[in-house]
Design a binder for these strands. Structure first.
Lengths: 194, 194, 194, 194
DNA sequence: CATGAATGAGAATTCATTCAT
DNA sequence: CATGAATGAATTCTCATTCAT
């Protein structure tokens, strides 16, 4: 435990660990407080309620997640290369933080509709990044020009998400990043202008 | 557990309606019993526990769902045509039963891991159907021969699932079946041998 | 404990005892349930929430209290005699049920405003009875004809209530009913037409 | 505890305002501290605990209240006139400080028994003043000589208290002081020697 | 087979009070 | 003197499941 960290982050890290280890419904506030080495009441100095811990957790972690991807694709000029980078970063980041992968792929999906809607809001910037790549591909004539943007976005996100979820549920018996080239090839083929 | 008896189905239909209208966490056993016009205790003559109602619901509804798709694709010899039929049937069936779409795409996903694992078991035959189409495509040289089968399956299922979920969350503001040709085209392109 | 009694009354009697012995703030629902020999959850089959137990308690007990007084004064034709009966019955009933006296005079007054307003509603019929006596006294020319009815009612009720509260707080070191003649004499003098 | 310091009074005035506006149970220490423009911890430099704030509030306010009444009745030689002055001052003071009236008539009564007993102690000097008037009335042969002093005192105090409480609860829709002559007339009649 | 009254375990949140600075 | 971040004890209510009728 890093006591220099402001308690806000201490609590969020504790929440990730506790939820990954005990499941969404096994994660009482008191358990998170204990893991974070704070009193139960201290949680409520930083978060309005339990749901707010989870939204904040997702915001913090996905915020970084998305930012790193957005940063990384800035380097390439080609939509296809950008897509490759996005897939690789998506997989690499979740591979390197197994606790986070469990929490985002499995546990947080058990939350109520209200929380899920807030989570969807957090994901919006990621979807915008995907949209940007698609648009660039169209502009560059790498991708078909009459693509249905929402549909394509849902295909890309749905594919990546399903693959990561399967990997988490199979307890990561294989290396996720190894899948990147084939997925990239398939997705580019799906969108290609010819 | 007696599956021939009418009350068994009465309870399952009631569960679909109650969950669709009240959400997963708003669906108490007593509410389902009331909707089914039986006493609370009667539920437990037909189902071991609450979770068992939901698994059975999924088994019944997805069983039919899958069977109809399997039946429908028997008619075609081409893997590409079969994939088209699968996508169309997938969308058509969920479009025509909005309650069921809400329950399977949104509400049942809030259940605990144990129930989700059982749901995955129920989906296995559907994944087998998808695998069969892929294999046939490879055998017919329509699809690339070195496809990674699980990966392809996850792409297809992940794409369809994400698209339906978005449609349900957007309160079906557009016609799902209209999307079939483009999705089919993209998926076939992704898998195509050249 | 009388197990023939429907649980509703069982719980109310338990609440009176528990509150009298432990005070308003020391009376947890679980303590009341234990005293009533029912499970905690059973309370909520009969009462919407904890506050509702207390309102019902007051309704039941005060309902009987008022009814007995109303019945008793029917016997007399004279307003002065009726007032005597009212005072005597008021004191006699609270003297004979010390637990109830503690609860109504001390403990229930610690409740929040919402409950206090509901309690005031329950008392309204009692105030009507007092008003009836005053009116009769005026009609019979026993009492002054230009009395301010609300003011007189408040004087009578305030006097009786303060006297009973003092008696309860002094742990009933004297006999409440002995006070009746003097109080009656003073109140009648206060209202008398000459 | 330093009573000369300005913060002591600052806190008491803040407590009156906060309790009048938020009710007894809505008045957290932190809210009082904020209203008083001091830190939460500062409260505990001046008061042992929360209950002590309330007792002090009552002591300060009722101390002045009683003193003013005692002073005012010094001017009259007749018990009846003194009683008139007492009633008028009682009503006038509470009329002119609506916040204080709410706090003493409604909110502070929701406190626990311990606080109520301390409040009763504070009221003792007021009851002594009433007793003094009664005794003077007896000595002057204005009042009956065999009056039961405690009983009479409870009638007077109970009457005034009930009337003020009703006025506060009715949101002071009428002028309290207008009631003085009739109440005085009734009380004097009740006690009069003939 | 069917009923439905009764059970009782389990958890989020508030807030008076402390104490290191 | 003053601060205010941190503490942690304490309690109502829900709802899946049982079982006597």
């Amino acid at each position: 435990m890093n006591n220099q960290k402001p308690k806000y982050h201490q609590i969020i890290e504790a929440a990730v660990k506790v939820i990954a280890e005990n499941g969404y419904h096994g994660s009482q506030v008191s358990k998170i407080a204990k893991e974070a080495n704070v009193a139960d009441g201290t949680i409520y100095l930083y978060f309005k309620n339990k749901e707010h811990i989870l939204v904040s957790l997702f915001e913090e972690k996905m915020g970084e997640f998305i930012e790193r991807i957005a940063k990384a694709i800035e380097g390439s000029d080609s939509a296809s290369d950008q897509l490759y980078t996005l897939i690789e970063m998506h997989f690499r980041q979740l591979s390197s933080d197994y606790y986070l992968a469990i929490v985002t792929q499995l546990e947080l999906r058990q939350s109520n509709i209200s929380l899920r809607l807030q989570i969807n809001q957090v994901l919006k910037p990621y979807l915008k990044v995907i949209d940007g790549i698609i648009q660039k591909g169209i502009d560059q004539h790498q991708f078909k020009e009459d693509l249905n943007m929402p549909l394509v976005r849902q295909m890309i996100f749905g594919t990546l998400d399903e693959i990561v979820t399967n990997w988490v549920m199979k307890e990561q018996k294989y290396t996720l990043v190894d899948m990147v080239p084939e997925i990239h090839r398939m997705l580019v083929s799906a969108l290609a202008s010819k």
